[in-house]
Design a protein around this nucleic acid. Structure first.
Lengths: 153, 153
DNA sequence: GGGTGGTGGTTCAAATTCGAACAACCATGA
DNA sequence: TCATGGTTGTTCGAATTTGAACCACCACCC
């Protein structure tokens, strides 16, 4: 790794860790939610009928199956999410966002968005924002495929 | 959040989670280290005399004091890091990278770097890499200051 | 000299995470 | 039909993380 690459990577690590911490702090103090909680509610809120299979949700959030089972359990206790049987697959479980969950999300979103804007988005020019989207999308695509190496030429 | 901003944020979340997972997987299978372990060794390796105060190390890694205490304990068990008294401050503790720790890092680095390159750096044009560095640095700077809002004009 | 607020590091309990193991169910082909 | 491999979701144990509480020590001022 040359100088520029190392600098990029170190900046990436520091920024991502700091941002995660800021987000966690804001959500906890303002809404009593954790970041994983919020991500689950947000994903469900934009899904058709506000529901997703556990597996699909886990894949989208990039979290382990068992981790999701635990978190959905927590959210169910609070009445923000409900478990339903999947009609098309007897094994399946649907995580469904409840009305209360939706209200909670709507109440929480502004403060959360404010943090993301303040520390990341508003720091960027429109071109930089566009580049970051492209960069992150490319990286995500590369990692979504299986395999551990770079794509062959 | 408008369309472009939301897209940027969602791409960011997915990419960072996926990358963390890939890194963790590679380190675990190839060297039996975790990402936190690696970050500690790497930070110490570039510090003067390969040593840092616990507090400084925790700040640099953006990790809690208690979390660092635990991880240094683990690394000490393996002989990769050593605790030493701080000469200038009776309270202080220095985490020192041992020779074995340095060897372990040197042996582990290539595989780790390969993952970071394959999934992030090599996906980017030189301009994109430069922009990402600038973006992440700006964000990190904004978050390193205290305060929860955007900087006033 | 002796308080006094603040810092540095550890300990502790609680919460969260993961992977492996498991049981139930789907889907395919003989 | 029914064996068989793959998928789904949960349970379990182990490892990790955090913040709060705590004690020892530094710096500063009376």
């Amino acid at each position: 790794m040359n100088e520029g690459e190392l600098g990029a990577w170190m900046a990436y690590l520091k920024a991502t860790h700091l941002l995660e911490r800021r987000i966690e702090e804001q959500l906890k103090t303002d809404s009593g939610l954790t970041h994983p909680h919020y991500e689950i509610l947000a994903k469900l809120s934009i899904a058709p009928e506000r529901r997703l299979r556990m597996s699909d949700l886990a894949r989208e959030l990039v979290v382990s199956k068992s981790g999701l089972t635990y978190q959905i359990g927590q959210l169910e206790k609070r009445g923000l999410v409900e478990r339903m049987d999947c009609p098309s697959d007897e094994r399946g479980v649907l995580a469904v966002l409840t009305d209360e969950g939706m209200r909670c999300l709507e109440k929480t979103a502004p403060g959360h968005v404010a943090v993301v804007r303040a520390f990341l988005i508003d720091q960027l020019t429109p071109e930089e924002l566009q580049t970051m989207t492209r960069v992150m999308s490319k990286a995500a695509t590369a990692m979504s495929q299986n395999g551990s190496g770079p794509a062959p030429t």
